[in-house]
Amino acid sequence: MTSLPEKTDKKLGLVIDLDTCVGCHACVISCKEWNTQGYGAPLADMDAYGAHPEGSFLNRVHSFEVTPDEGPSAVVHFPKSCLHCEDAPCVTVCPTGASYKRAEDGIVLVNESDCIGCGLCAWACPYGAREMDPSEQVMKKCTLCVDRIYNDNIPEEDRVPSCVRTCPAGARHFGDLGDPDSDVSRLVAERGGMDLMPEQETKPVNKYLPPRAKDGLGETDVLAPYLDPVTEEADGFVGWLDRALSRI
């Protein structure tokens, strides 16, 4: 049913640390690798070895340049995937009931055998989290690796989303954001975790941790004043040239 659950028992989601992300795209690759096998239709690549390769991905990393009023710009790497919103507009627009949000853990999923590929859910999402698979013509989105996190057949440390498991910088965290005492909730509280586009009123579950303030450049060295150029005026030929030209 495409109505949203009144409340979910858990709010499973990701916390992404923009201070730590190095923009290596390892999460993009591991996501594609895990999710192209097993759950649902594979994530297709079209024209993979041709002039215009493209494919469906559930997670992509943008890089932004942020320019303050004063001082140097900063580059922020910005991974983006489904935010598993509490008021997910992608769910209620679905005409077939293929798109749904689970009452038990809040994960937003697509039942691919009910998806007619109309694309309306992708239009309804402000974040671009849903992509139509170019080969299967059904809507693909982040499942929070629902086939890993409850999977008793894999080692316990692997029971997290593939992107979280693979991140070499530890910039991605997974947990229950509905439990105020969970590690992820405490992290969000400590670091001032934020919502993307709050004005869209989707109430995203995933949170982003803002980059920490960087050290200022300030004085580069306490000895700097003693390193002023000693020679005030040039001598020799250059000095003569300087004086001659100054007189003209």
Binding site: F64, V66, V76
Partner: peptide, 23 residues
């Protein structure tokens, strides 16, 4: 607002996530 980075300054796309087209 899309990135939440407005508190740091003006935000501009530096590098897109993919060089080709997508859906």
């Amino acid at each position: 607002t899309a990135t939440g980075l407005g508190f740091m300054g003006r935000v501009r796309l530096f590098e897109p996530p993919h060089t080709g087209a997508n859906y």
